[in-house]
């Protein structure tokens, strides 16, 4: 298969078919917590796209050239077991760094995304993407495409959810289901809808 076709397959597969929230359950916290309004949901989704794309590139680089360095491997030193520790620290530092950089250099972008950046360190989707790239043995380009499209999947899910929640606000919901419970029922229905894509690949 040609490179472009395989990249397309990764992109569609991770954005829609195996949606990060609705079928892999990563990033449930922001999905339920920050989905009350469409604007904030879009801001959160944008920040996640930004961070996951950069972090999948950086963690990919570190894995290729530091942890799984061919020179070290040939000497019998296998550092790949350190990946969980290294990735989580790199991601935490990266989010801080991105925030400082945006504040200094791109105040306009910082204004729209900045609020959501600190929320992302604890988002398990970021670490999940970095670890999945290693498991699936993606190269650097594939990792970035995978990271970007996974984050786009998150964006789609959280914006759709916020749109639906704005509508349900005015519905007559049974008292015990008000709040989180009805949101979870909505997520269940969305998840069923997304299962319809599973025939695509």
């Amino acid at each position: 298969m040609s490179t472009l076709a395989s990249l397309m397959l990764i992109a569609v597969g991770s954005a829609i078919v195996n949606n990060v929230v609705l079928s892999q359950f990563l990033g449930i916290c922001p999905f339920l917590g920050v989905s009350k309004k469409t604007e904030t949901a879009a801001g959160m989704g944008g920040a996640v796209i930004f961070v996951i794309t950069i972090s999948s590139f950086i963690t990919g680089l570190i894995y290729k050239f530091v942890l799984a360095n061919p020179f070290l491997l040939s000497k019998g030193i296998d550092l790949t077991y350190l990946k969980t520790i290294v990735f989580i620290l790199v991601i935490a530092a990266l989010v801080q760094f991105v925030e400082m950089f945006l504040k200094k250099k791109m105040p306009a972008l910082y204004k729209s995304l900045g609020v959501y950046l600190p929320l992302i360190t604890t988002n398990c989707a970021v670490l999940g993407v970095a670890l999945n790239c290693v498991t699936y043995e993606y190269n650097l380009l594939e990792s970035v495409v995978y990271g970007f499209s996974t984050a786009v999947g998150f964006f789609i899910a959280i914006v759709l959810m916020a749109g639906i929640r704005e509508k349900i606000e005015y519905n007559d919901i049974p008292k015990t289901f008000q709040g989180t419970a009805i949101v979870l029922v909505t997520a269940c229905l969305m998840s069923i809808a997304f299962m319809g894509f599973s025939g695509m690949i």
């Binding site: 609705l22 079928s23 359950f25 289901f177 709040g179 989180t180 419970a181 009805i182 979870l184 029922v185 997520a187 269940c188 229905l189 998840s191 069923i192 299962m195």
Partner: peptide, 12 residues
């Protein structure tokens, strides 16, 4: 996947 959300909804 949808079953997980549904069971959790009833739990909440």
């Amino acid at each position: 996947a949808p079953g997980a959300f549904l069971v959790l909804a009833f739990l909440v």
